[in-house]
Simulated scan of single mutants.
Amino acid sequence: MPRRTSGPARRRRPQRHKDVLHEHRTRDFRCAGCRLDVSADAPGTGHRNHCPHCLVSLHVDARVPGDRAAGCRGRMEALSVSARADGEWLLIHRCLACGELSANRIAGDDNPRALVLLVVRPLRAASASCRALLAS
């Protein structure tokens, strides 16, 4: 079934070429959240930037994914999930050190349960507040 849009048909902007050198990107890493060893290979994306198990990341990229130019190095927690017009999911991370927000593509091996828990988090919070209102 075709997707309805309001107004002229929206076209996804082509991904810009990343001319960043990635020699240092190919190393595996240990997750700052769950402490599991994570492979640098990420199905569906060329830049592994978060743990596929707990979705925690480190604030290492500045402007371009994979540039590793951020000086903060703070822990980034997954806040929410967003979806592009074409249906691709993005993780919204917030740095606990500096507060910066970033959007990162999900990888093919990300934990589906962790992703769904992020999606339903606003619904869970809303139902708790409704219960509190009804109890008073």
Results as ranks from 00 to 15, higher is better:
Gly44Tyr: 00
Val38Ala: 06
Ser80Thr: 13
Arg16Leu: 13
Ala85Asp: 12
Cys34Gly: 01
Pro112Cys: 07
Pro8Thr: 10
Cys31Ile: 03
Pro122Trp: 07
Leu133Asp: 08
Arg63Asn: 13
Pro8Arg: 14
Arg4Ile: 14
Ser80His: 12
Glu23Lys: 08
His59Gln: 04
Leu101Ala: 07
Ala135Thr: 12
Gly108Met: 03
Leu90Ser: 00
Ala114Glu: 05
Ala107Ile: 02
Arg75Phe: 00
Asn49Asp: 12
Arg75Pro: 05
Cys31Ala: 04
Arg12Phe: 06
Cys72Phe: 05
Ile106Met: 09
Asp86Tyr: 00
Ala135Met: 10
His17Val: 09
Cys54Asp: 10
Asp41Cys: 09
Gly99Ala: 11
Arg84Phe: 03
Arg113Met: 10
Lys18His: 13
Pro112Asp: 07
Ala132Gly: 08
Arg13His: 09
Leu91Trp: 02
Ala132Arg: 15
Ala107Pro: 00
Ala69Lys: 11
Cys130Asp: 14
Cys72Arg: 03
Leu134Ser: 14
Ala83Tyr: 13
Ala126Tyr: 08
Gly44Glu: 02
Val38Pro: 03
Val81Asn: 01
Leu123Lys: 07
Leu90Asn: 02
Ser39Ile: 01
Lys18Cys: 11
Ile92Pro: 05
Pro65Thr: 02
Arg113His: 09
Gly46Ser: 13
Gly7Lys: 05
His47Leu: 04
Leu133His: 14
Ser57Trp: 00
Thr5Asn: 11
Leu58Ile: 13
Leu55Asp: 00
Asp110Lys: 06
Gly74Arg: 01
His50Glu: 01
Ser127Ile: 11
Cys54Ile: 05
Leu118Val: 06
Ala97Val: 06
Cys98Leu: 04
Pro43Lys: 06
Val64Glu: 08
Val116Gln: 12
Val120Glu: 07
Pro52Thr: 04
Cys130His: 13
Cys95Leu: 05
Leu79Gly: 00
Pro65Asn: 06
Ser136Asp: 12
Asp61Ile: 03
Ala114Gln: 09
Ala132Leu: 14
His50Lys: 08
His53Tyr: 13
Ser39Asp: 14
Pro52Ile: 00
Gly87Ala: 06
Leu117Ser: 14
Ala114Cys: 03
Gly108Pro: 00
Leu55Cys: 02
